[in-house]
Design a binder for these strands. Sequence first.
DNA 1: ATCGATGCAAAGGGTTTGCAGGAGC
DNA 2: GCTCCTGCAAACCCTTTGCATCGAT
Lengths: 138, 138
Amino acid sequence: MKTDTEKKLRYSHQREMIYQYLMGTQEHPSAEMVYDALRSEIKGLSLGTVYRNLRLLEDLGKVRRVASLNGTERYDAMCGDHVHFICQSCGTVHDVPEAELEQVRGTISLPEGYQLGQVNLTLSGLCPECLKKQASAN
Amino acid sequence: MKTDTEKKLRYSHQREMIYQYLMGTQEHPSAEMVYDALRSEIKGLSLGTVYRNLRLLEDLGKVRRVASLNGTERYDAMCGDHVHFICQSCGTVHDVPEAELEQVRGTISLPEGYQLGQVNLTLSGLCPECLKKQASAN
DNA sequence: ATCGATGCAAAGGGTTTGCAGGAGC
DNA sequence: GCTCCTGCAAACCCTTTGCATCGAT
């Protein structure tokens, strides 16, 4: 009586590497960034495979889509709710550990009848580097 | 010493209608939804024009991109920060007036050197209708 | 008359998918 | 050996853009 994920999945080196890569990075990469990072380690890796596995890992709840920048999705292996900062200029996505999302979650009162899933708090603005560049451009 | 928006803009019926439509709706429409809603009123309206004007209105700060669902951007004419609820199942975007975003903004402490712009709090989950459908499917 | 705005259609960029061969179990 | 997974490339979808024309000032 649940979303039947009847298909049993097999081990795949590609999937494992993709997941490991996401676990080990802080950069909240897009599919293409993952692809670029792994193509040297996995000969013949294809972008399609990266997309397929990201989607699969997402369905499994092991990976999360954390932001969308200029039509490009960004992924993260940490699945707990947390806060992200997106730089409008360079597109970097940083975690913001200081912000207390738990606290935020506490203050939310949804109207009757809604079921709350993810809480996504995204800040945008300019990162230190881009601020610097902007300053020196004047 | 500012982003020179030197180009002077002229009145356009299409732009006016698009803006009015966004002001008058609660549905946080995508470009195509705006197009579909207005094509009967504006003969010969083109989707490209809708996109161009949404972008322009966004640059003017009169309209805001509030969410991206399955790679499709959603727009809103209300430009203050507020909270949105996206139904994972049907894609509806609702405002959540109860949530106190101001309060949230107060609790945020960014690391040194960042400049905070927009604060975007998006909740996702299931809306009442989809919950109902899901229940009756069992 | 000038130059911004439009419609149209083609191009662009990210993501998905069909297919035949390859790999896990 | 049965299926799932992969690589490749074509297909898809949303969005942007080039171009000739229309329209506002």
